[in-house]
């Protein structure tokens, strides 16, 4: 695996409250565990996963699709970890 591995995955926001402040904090903290650059997109809006302001500005609500993109040597583990949070509804429900 090269250092610039780039992986993309489409996820759905499943928790009822959407990507609100506490969920954003969780995403920021999880992202910090990886070297890869992680970006979330909703439509034309882009958020760096290490910025709460970016993440909140997506306004991603329940049922909406978010594309996650991870670039770096640990992209695979990073995207898995982020996807896990989404699938587990950010452990809120």
């Amino acid at each position: 695996m090269t250092d610039n591995t780039r992986l993309v995955r489409e996820l759905v926001v499943e928790n009822s409250a959407g990507i609100h402040a506490r969920v954003s904090t969780m995403l920021v903290q999880k992202s910090k565990e990886f070297l890869s650059e992680i970006i979330l997109r909703k439509g034309s809006a882009i958020a760096h996963s290490d910025s709460m302001i970016d993440l909140l500005s997506l306004g991603a609500a329940q049922g909406e699709k978010v594309t996650v993109e991870a670039t770096g040597s640990d992209a695979s583990a990073a995207i898995e970890a982020i996807a896990n949070l989404f699938v587990n509804k950010f452990y809120e429900e």
């Binding site: 609100h20 909140l56 500005s57 997506l58 609500a61």
Partner: peptide
């Protein structure tokens, strides 16, 4: 009304970027 809360946060943070 979680969506209302989310819309308010979205508006605030979009401007503050």
């Amino acid at each position: 009304q979680p969506s209302e809360h989310l819309r308010a946060l979205e508006h605030i943070t979009r401007q503050l970027k």
